[in-house]
Design a protein around this nucleic acid. Sequence first.
DNA 1: AATGAATGAGATTTCATTCAT
DNA 2: GATGAATGAAATCTCATTCAT
Lengths: 190, 190, 190, 190
Amino acid sequence: MNDTKKSIFESAIKIFSKCGYNGATMDAIASEAGVAKGTLYYHFKSKEEIFNFIVREGMELIKNSIEDVASEKDNILCKIKVLCRIQLSLVYESRDFFKVVMSQIWGEELRQLELRAAINKHICYTQSYLEEGMDKGVIKRGDSYLMAYTLFGTICSTAVYELINDDKGSLDQLIERQLKYILEGIQERK
Amino acid sequence: MNDTKKSIFESAIKIFSKCGYNGATMDAIASEAGVAKGTLYYHFKSKEEIFNFIVREGMELIKNSIEDVASEKDNILCKIKVLCRIQLSLVYESRDFFKVVMSQIWGEELRQLELRAAINKHICYTQSYLEEGMDKGVIKRGDSYLMAYTLFGTICSTAVYELINDDKGSLDQLIERQLKYILEGIQERK
Amino acid sequence: MNDTKKSIFESAIKIFSKCGYNGATMDAIASEAGVAKGTLYYHFKSKEEIFNFIVREGMELIKNSIEDVASEKDNILCKIKVLCRIQLSLVYESRDFFKVVMSQIWGEELRQLELRAAINKHICYTQSYLEEGMDKGVIKRGDSYLMAYTLFGTICSTAVYELINDDKGSLDQLIERQLKYILEGIQERK
Amino acid sequence: MNDTKKSIFESAIKIFSKCGYNGATMDAIASEAGVAKGTLYYHFKSKEEIFNFIVREGMELIKNSIEDVASEKDNILCKIKVLCRIQLSLVYESRDFFKVVMSQIWGEELRQLELRAAINKHICYTQSYLEEGMDKGVIKRGDSYLMAYTLFGTICSTAVYELINDDKGSLDQLIERQLKYILEGIQERK
DNA sequence: AATGAATGAGATTTCATTCAT
DNA sequence: GATGAATGAAATCTCATTCAT
């Protein structure tokens, strides 16, 4: 990915996150990237292709981030904690990408079906960690697939939290709290 | 709200949920409602007004549903459980409304800021339940605001689950599982 | 076909004939028709649909013109002469339509393949007249299909003649001459 | 004309014939020629210049072909027959060039007016053969200019025939038939 | 000689809104 | 109350041309 393409890629994430897919205009993306409109079409066949490229690259990046760190641990509970922490902090670091995903996951257009497939693949990937946790006895036995979704829900809630409340101060604390809720629940043990 | 307006209202939810705000066309809404395009403008000033009307009515409905049932219970843990169950089942019953909210919450347009405010208000409302739970010693002491978001996240995850997996069979079971995860966590107690 | 649509239809023929299909712009057609660009799209789905509509209507018109007059004659040679005369005079009266056909018949786009099919159908239709002429002994026995093409070629030559030479004075004389060439040839009988 | 320029020249004919002038893109021509787009502009000033170059070269070639063969005969009827035969077979051998001419002859752009002038010059050239035929008593006396157009029309009809029917088998037979029709007409002599 | 990234003017198309009926 | 033809601003996309390498 050369400089121009990278610049378009980053600008598109910014604009898509602010305006949604249909609200984002090629003019806005071009202007944000500091290139002419025609240049977008030199590097991408269409607006939809920019979108798909973003999704593909973004999901790849997340997967790599997780694998890099998780591979260092051999304790499965640690791995799961790392998995959660990384995703939770990515919500902050790649907030624009998350907004694009979360706003575009709901419709019935082809690009949205593909996005859903990508998200489902990611959730299945985290599911495999949970199943290893069940085998090792550190995660409660149960519907690992649904559990993986619950975990994804926590990511979502964090994204919404970040969206509505701009408090960036206590990021680490926030992440630890969320992690605790998901692992141990919110109900007081009797 | 007369029949025509109601028909437009329901069609608009359907179209907004399928296409997003910008992707939805007045043509599509009119055609879904079985009326002429001009009729939309007889009942609503603009597309944005249809959207705002939907959000207002929808949030009102949810709040009423919760209050109706919660008022019957006097045990706060029961109230919280009911609160969760109702919202989780609403994800299924009003799935189109949820899609509209979830897809439109992320941008910076005026209508989106207003939507966020409405959602935040709703979360604060559930927060008050959690605080009562803390006072009564059934919910772990902690950041009740963040906890309310976590709860909202579970709603989100259920919505995404419903979106990707069409299994409608075991709805009650699903809800009970989600409820258990949020209350008791996913980690095995030692 | 209401007034607006008719106006678009006629303007489009004019513009297509002057600029070709790709050279014609929707702006030019709209401006010629005295309507807004959006109005074109209210009546036709696309530029291509305008083109196809023109071809369909135009061929229909020609066929009707021929049938109307030919049905009055019972002598087959008279019918064939009428067939030729009508087409030759149509070259002048509907010169813009002919230019559209002649300029667009050559490519490999879908609309052009359809146009070719329409032209071929028309040629086959004139072929049936020639075959009747052969049966009645007034037309030389031979390849009636190729002969029908030769007849079409005379139409073409007249169109090119009209294009290059603006002499409109002696239209009837011109037609009679062309008719004589095609029926009796240009070579001096020995 | 070096190899690169020749390759561009031939590719341009192919693309122009398939897409028309406005439909042909410099990208398509470059890709067909197997060179970069910039290379086109090294050899030609503009798209229009490529077009004009093609017309000039093509007309030159046709004239030379005719003169070469016609000069061998001294009988004028033979010359005229040769003239027809060569042009009719050129329709097959240089079909792409013919398509370019036939599709581009109709508009009002400068390049098209120039093309018409070139065609008219060619028709006047064949006219001079017909006049010699009239003087020698082998061609019917009459409007030699119109007659030359009729002859050109037969070329057109053959091109359309070739376009719609791919039967390449009986080329010589086809040409002889066309020649007969134009010389002797299609009507049965009584 | 040749390249191909970049451009921007201009093309086709979309669609929320208006308005006369 | 309801309609749908008409609009025009703005969207996506195309492509001949330029220019630094």
